[in-house]
Design a protein around this nucleic acid. Structure first.
Lengths: 354, 354
DNA sequence: ATGAAAGCGCTAACAA
DNA sequence: TTGTTAGCGCTTTCAT
């Protein structure tokens, strides 16, 4: 797998020196362009030639130098993935999914995880990355506006995961937030809950609006008055869920169910309930969103909305590659948003009100 | 931040064309080698020249083409990070830490997360990555043997995080597993526990041996006989912790404390206890290892050993860069293992036996 | 202090 | 079908 340095050549520092096209050409008795053609599959070489080249290649353990190729072709086969919160288990899974998909298509992932969407620290990422990268995928929880504005201006092909906003003129891939919120609301309503609190995500975060809005509408359509469906602000993390739930318990002891922006919020809410010696789901039902791995391991296990992270990542990469082929100017469905189906995962944290 | 294409030049497909050294040179009225010198800081240019160059650079929004530079210098400033289990919250944090540190030093992270240590699928990663990368960092839970054997053979500078094995002749950085296990054992013993079970990690995983061994020895030194400190096999995931704890409860109802290979195992164990209607810590104490973010949010919150992921990542990158400077052959502390201090984090899941 | 020129390893247009 | 040649954008001798 590793060029065994069959020539025995070594640099002065002792590291084996990689064979080049020239070495292969010489050994095979052809010109270097012939080798290049055989390797890239351009033109049809004589079987003899092809064999000679291949033998030389394996003998020398030759591998193309991707840097030289990139310089020549102007394409690096690198995808910049920018992620802003690796603490949220959703994002690592998304990153992994993009990596798997990208690798399948012959691309690699250049990672940038030091972004602070709020202050536009994305510039760091950008300055490191933009030039060498064929395209970008953003996987962000924070408000992504500064990020995508930059990318939009740079005209570098970009796909947004974790964005669900028709006003943004960039390709987007997101879970079907609307359907998820609908499923969550209906689930609680069908169980018989009438007084349902909703703990929102961080203000301005990509999914806060769509998830909250549809949840609210679904409750209204079921005839639940707004006074019975209070909304609180969380921050997308357990801390925010804990605080919001505490506030809720202090003011509205009549609530029988809490729906959350995401699973991490729900985890915080469950802890607040636990600290208040309330039982889940007997006293209060809790439902999350995302179905992170941890959701199966809370006490009680969390009922939630499952999103297919692998699918999200795969579709994002596919769209990006299509963008790369199409070139700018060409629409290629540039600004359309793709939504990945979600489903309800019933576990232990929801039950009829007692 | 993005080259505004001040020249107005555009490729035929509409993407702005980046300015080159030549463009800058022409505009500044000097040769391109002078521009290069000014930019790389070689030689001392006349102030006038320097100013002229800098003006031209900003006017054109010039950025060096990293690919061309790499081809010339033979160094990509890319670090390949190979990670095998993004489901374990420890690893994303470690990846982030390497990214932050690397970026500080002018390097970027090429990620590979599709490795299956068991079957040696690392080859995928390797074949994609090895050529373009200056060095590699492995962040793996699975047995890393096939991986590091490959890297060792390839003579590419490599640092192993999540390896703690003096027999491996590669630079290693790990948490101080021995000290962590000692702290955990002592904590339980000092609370008065006499019958302590230990749930191990996956067989052959890098930390299983060191953590288990020291835990065992510490118990022995405290005078606890082996029959009172049974060891069970987990898999490093909640599932394994759950299964092991169930087995334990079925066979040894006398146990008053469970120490775990890692927090995820502990999370599974806590669930087993919960399912058996045993209270933590009143009936059974539980202690983990790693201090992942989730540890603070279990019911009850998990007592555990805190490891500094950021520190681990930073030190790993530092060592790798030192290796890069040193070149192979030069020792530079090649095979020495660095251990990052850990500490005991007492939360709610441990208490004296009742 | 600066310029001219070579060349890193590769692909692709053009000739043969 | 194959070889010759140019050149991607940069760094780095070697002259000047």
């Amino acid at each position: 797998m590793i060029p065994p340095s069959a020539t025995g050549k070594r640099s002065h520092r002792g590291r084996p020196v990689a064979a080049t096209l020239h070495d292969v050409a010489r050994l095979a008795g052809v010109s270097h362009s012939t080798v290049s053609r055989v390797l890239t599959g351009q033109g049809i070489p004589r079987p003899r030639t092809a064999r000679a080249v291949e033998r030389a290649v394996t003998e020398l353990g030759y591998r193309v130098n991707p840097v030289a190729r990139s310089l020549r072709t102007g394409t690096t086969h690198l995808i910049g993935v920018v992620v802003d919160d690796l603490q949220d288990p959703v994002l690592p899974m998304l990153v992994k999914a993009t990596d798997v998909a990208a690798r399948d298509m012959g691309y690699s992932i250049l990672l940038s995880s030091v972004v602070d969407g709020r202050t536009g620290r994305l510039i760091d990422a950008e300055s490191m990355v933009v030039q060498g990268v064929d395209g970008m995928i953003l996987v962000c929880n924070e408000p992504t506006e500064p990020a995508w504005r930059l990318l939009l201006a740079s005209s570098i092909p970009t796909v947004l995961i974790s964005a669900d906003d028709p006003d943004v003129r960039l390709a987007q891939v997101s879970p079907d937030n609307a359907e998820g919120s609908r499923l969550a609301a209906r689930h609680l309503i069908e169980l018989g809950h009438q007084r349902i609190a909703y703990i929102r995500g961080p203000k301005g975060s990509p999914y806060d609006q769509p998830r909250t809005a549809v949840f609210r509408v679904t409750c209204q359509e079921a005839g639940l008055p707004r006074t019975m469906t209070p909304e609180l602000r969380g921050d997308g993390r357990p801390e925010g869920g804990l605080r919001a739930a505490k506030r809720l318990l202090a003011s509205r002891a009549d609530i029988t169910a809490i729906a959350c922006y995401n699973d991490r919020t729900a985890i915080g809410a469950i802890r607040a309930l636990w600290l208040a010696s309330l039982r889940v789901p007997e006293d209060v039902s809790v439902i999350g969103f995302d179905d992170i791995a941890e959701a199966a391991w809370t006490q009680p296990a969390l009922t939630t909305i499952t999103q297919r992270s692998d699918e999200l990542g795969r579709v994002a990469v596919e769209r990006l590659l299509r963008l790369l082929e199409a070139g700018p100017g060409d629409p290629a469905g540039l600004a359309t948003a793709v939504r990945i189906p979600v489903s309800l995962q019933v576990r232990e944290s929801t039950a009829p009100p007692s």
